[in-house]
């Protein structure tokens, strides 16, 4: 018994640094944000230390300035919906591009794979802002894409891609692609290619092999990649700001607005907490799905 208590104490002692970091760096700031969301906004930003649920009310409702009439905050909901929609589409695009890419890399000879993986991750070592402006340069009206298409005679006038949802989607899919490719590669690398022959041998068509054998077996990689792309997409700030312009806001930009020009810190804090909640729900759904797929759940 005494030995066990001693071991337990040593265990706690050893995990103390990790726990300290978790408390100070993760839980602490979250707590601050949570507390701020229940305070009253200061006139020039900041907060007044009075308890209030006004910020949470403002997330969903608007009070008319003159008549005090309460209506649903359509604009807020639209931004949330747009963010979720764009993030889901980003995840889908990243998967559609990332899966063949990861498959290609995983089926190269082992000595070549490292090179391909390195090439995939190169953009990742480059500053996000620079990469986003690079995309901007490609798709703007006088940019490379439009110039080439006009020269080739495909179009007469430049297509407006910049400052649309399409631009945001292209940018986010590009930025987060490595996060999809790497876990997919890991899963496909573990996949026993001999199962393909077994399935073909048992009368499966190419489509059936993909649906019945490959996808179920690389599902952990699909789930991991999707989480890694969806979560940062949902909170994306730089990409929608640079490529989506001022009017195509996502949650990240909207939150920034509250802490900046909006001077409504409690609302920004409440929105942040809501974003966190959505991410948690998404994670929960993913984890459940992953558990079903591999039979460990």
């Amino acid at each position: 018994m005494e030995e066990e208590t001693k071991q337990a104490r040593t265990g706690w002692l050893l995990s103390a640094p990790a726990l300290a970091i978790l408390l100070l760096a993760a839980s602490g700031p979250l707590l601050v944000v949570l507390v701020y969301s229940f305070l009253v906004k200061g006139q020039y930003g900041g907060v007044i230390w009075t308890f209030s649920t006004e910020a949470w009310f403002e997330v969903l409702f608007t009070r008319d300035i003159f008549s005090d009439e309460v209506t649903l905050a359509d604009a807020h909901l639209a931004i949330f919906w747009r963010s979720v929609k764009l993030s889901l589409m980003t995840t889908a695009i990243a998967f559609a591009v990332g899966f063949p890419t990861a498959w290609f890399i995983a089926t190269r000879p082992p000595n070549r794979r490292a090179l391909w993986l390195f090439l995939i991750t190169i953009p990742f070592w480059t500053n996000l802002l620079i990469r986003t402006f690079a995309i901007n340069e490609v798709i703007r009206n006088e940019g490379i894409l439009n110039t080439l298409m006009i020269r080739a005679g495909l179009i007469e006038r430049p297509i407006q891609i910049l400052y649309t949802d399409t631009a945001v989607l292209i940018g986010m899919a590009y930025v987060y692609l490595p996060l999809m490719v790497l876990p997919l590669f890991a899963a496909i690398d573990r996949f026993d290619m001999r199962l393909l022959e077994a399935a073909y041998d048992l009368y499966a068509s190419r489509w059936q092999v993909l649906r019945r054998i490959i996808l179920p077996l690389v599902k952990p990689g699909i789930v991991a990649g999707s989480i890694l792309v969806f979560v940062p997409s949902l909170g994306a700030y730089v990409t929608p700001r640079v490529l989506g312009g001022g009017k195509n806001m996502m949650i990240g930009n909207f939150i920034e607005l509250q802490f900046g020009q909006g001077r409504n810190w409690p609302l920004g804090a409440a929105l942040s907490m809501l974003l966190l909640a959505i991410v948690m729900v998404a994670l929960l759904i993913y984890v459940r799905a992953a558990g079903r797929g591999t039979g460990h759940g």
Partner: peptide, 20 residues
């Protein structure tokens, strides 16, 4: 004919059973 259109089946050395 591709393997999925041949009425021939194989028992593989590795068995290649579907783990899922």
């Amino acid at each position: 004919l591709p393997p999925n259109r041949r009425p021939i089946n194989t028992v593989f050395q590795s068995y290649a059973l579907f783990p899922h």
